[in-house]
């Protein structure tokens, strides 16, 4: 059962990892905890749903959906984040929560409070069977995507001028400007990239069990934050690892018979783990102590 929980944890935790990657990206570059990250994905899956129900080919609809997410991220940065550049980070945090609530309202307006089914990009359900758990092509695609994205982003932030400029702008914006870097453009680029990551999370996970208004916020944002903290809030590979840990813990808590009498054992177990991590290793598993 423990081994099976590990398998389930990996395939479900990858989805949390995708959300966590977006959170870490924004936090790493601007120090902002982005509560709108889930809604970048939900808006994208709504766009995908609208596209496919209007006869647009799936691949084109996915591209349009990612474009919508990117525009949403760009507008959020220009209209909400940039005007608050000099405000306390908590103010920006609250502002992103406002963006999320606005997006949920928009989704309610578009699709009502209904669960909507949507076809996955890849439909085969039984590609792999590991420890009696079937793994679909869509799940494999999510795992592959989150691993590739984490590694690429890690390379960008450690090996490219763009990544270093983003980190520099985060630490010392004035000095970065004096070096000739246009910090505002970097900020826009980061938010667009984060929104794209959210969009990818939305179009990949939405088909797993249907979606409704605020679906990625309610189903994965808290888990994504937890994953980011566990992995180390500044570590991109750590975000993936944290997602897997969250998935494994939830799966273990569900199947553990000795927790059967505990109300909400999944949440309780996750909370205990979070406290332990914060006390024992505040920088997270892969994060570096400041």
């Amino acid at each position: 059962m423990t081994a099976q929980a590990l398998v389930i944890g990996i395939i479900t935790g990858a989805a949390y990892g995708l959300v966590a990657l977006g959170l870490v990206l924004v936090y790493k570059s601007s120090g902002v905890l982005n509560f709108a990250q889930g809604e970048f994905g939900t808006v994208a899956v709504y766009a995908l749903w609208l596209g496919t129900t209007h006869g647009i080919p799936y691949v084109l609809a996915v591209l349009i959906a990612l474009g919508v997410a990117a525009v949403f991220g760009f507008v959020t940065e220009r209209v909400v984040v940039r005007p608050l550049a000099d405000a306390p980070r908590v103010t920006v945090l609250v502002a992103t929560a406002g963006v999320a609530l606005l997006a949920v309202g928009l989704e309610l307006w578009i699709g009502q409070a209904q669960i909507r089914p949507i076809a996955p990009a890849l439909r085969r359900q039984d590609r792999l069977r590991i420890l009696n758990v079937y793994i679909s092509d869509q799940r494999l695609l999510i795992i592959l995507t989150v691993v590739v994205v984490a590694l690429v982003l890690r390379w960008v932030f450690t090996r490219t001028f763009l990544g270093l400029a983003v980190l520099a702008a985060s630490e010392e914006p004035t000095g970065t400007r004096l070096m000739g870097v246009r910090v505002e453009r970097l900020s826009s680029a980061v938010w667009v990239l984060a929104a794209l990551l959210g969009g990818v999370a939305g179009v990949l996970t939405g088909p797993l069990s249907g979606f409704g208004p605020g679906f990625l916020t309610s189903s994965a944002l808290v888990a994504g934050f937890t994953a980011a903290v566990i992995g180390g809030f500044t570590s991109l590979p750590g975000a993936f690892l944290g997602g897997v840990v969250v998935g494994v813990i939830q799966s273990l808590a569900t199947s553990a018979s000795w927790l059967a009498d505990v109300p909400g054992p999944q949440t309780a177990a996750l909370f205990v783990l979070l406290v332990v991590i914060l006390l024992a290793r505040p920088q997270g598993i892969l994060g570096r102590a400041s």
Partner: peptide, 24 residues
């Protein structure tokens, strides 16, 4: 230590916010 506290605050905030979405 400020970061973890901030994150915890954030988690609590989103939990509260989730209950308020939607609405007629």
């Amino acid at each position: 230590m400020r970061r973890p506290l901030l994150v915890l605050f954030a988690l609590l905030f989103v939990l509260a916010a989730c209950g308020q979405k939607a609405g007629v």
